[in-house]
Design a protein around this nucleic acid. Sequence first.
RNA 1: CGACGUAGAGAGAA
Length: 246
Amino acid sequence: EVTYSAVLDVYAKVGKVGEVMSLYERGRASGWTPDPIAFSVLCKVFGEAGDYDGIRFVLQEMRSLGVQPNLVVYNTLLEAMGKAGKPGLARSLFEEMIEAGVTPNEKTLTALVKVYGKARWSRDALELWERMRSSGWPMDFILYNTLLSMCADLGLEEEAEMLFEDMKQSEYCRPDSFSYTAMLNIYGSGGKVDRAMELVEEMSEVGVELNVMGCTCLIQCLGRSKRLDELARVFEASIERGIRPD
RNA sequence: CGACGUAGAGAGAA
């Protein structure tokens, strides 16, 4: 029982989708009842392959075997829905999870935000953010960064600023280079050069390193505004600091 | 004894 799930995971890590399925079928045929770990592994494999039919198979199997998904199974299911681009199904699965009395963790919420972001469902993502706060669900820097990055993709500047401020005030996390890159991206595509430059200043004050990605956003922002002199200075300074252009 | 989460830019082609 333990061994089946463990071996399934080994196949999964090597990316052998066919092997995973045939081992699963063989186990089933010999009377093995899969545990939640086995299902989470199946979800991971189908999710990575973007195989939506596979996901439906997993849901079907769990239902017919009467296996209740646990937190990790829900997390892997939600991630798989993201890769398959099924935000509506992800949303109803999430509601089902809450009804079942399973409390989401940071990974659950990150997965769901990512699904919404990919589908450009920013309204759902931001409502979820409100709900996390009022329900006292756990939030960490990765979750905030995922929200920020969605705002950057969709050009939601005001929302991003609220999230960013909230993140600074949180006792559980502080903005890191991912967070600043998302903000630089937002100001970059919105042409807010001065806000972007202020952020760079702030980064050195709080000791967050500007990396290649943040630097790229900044350079693009300066280029867009035709501030080529500053652009050149930023570029030179970045090289000095050890950033390798890619 | 085994399972899960975050970022930039990108010629040509579509």
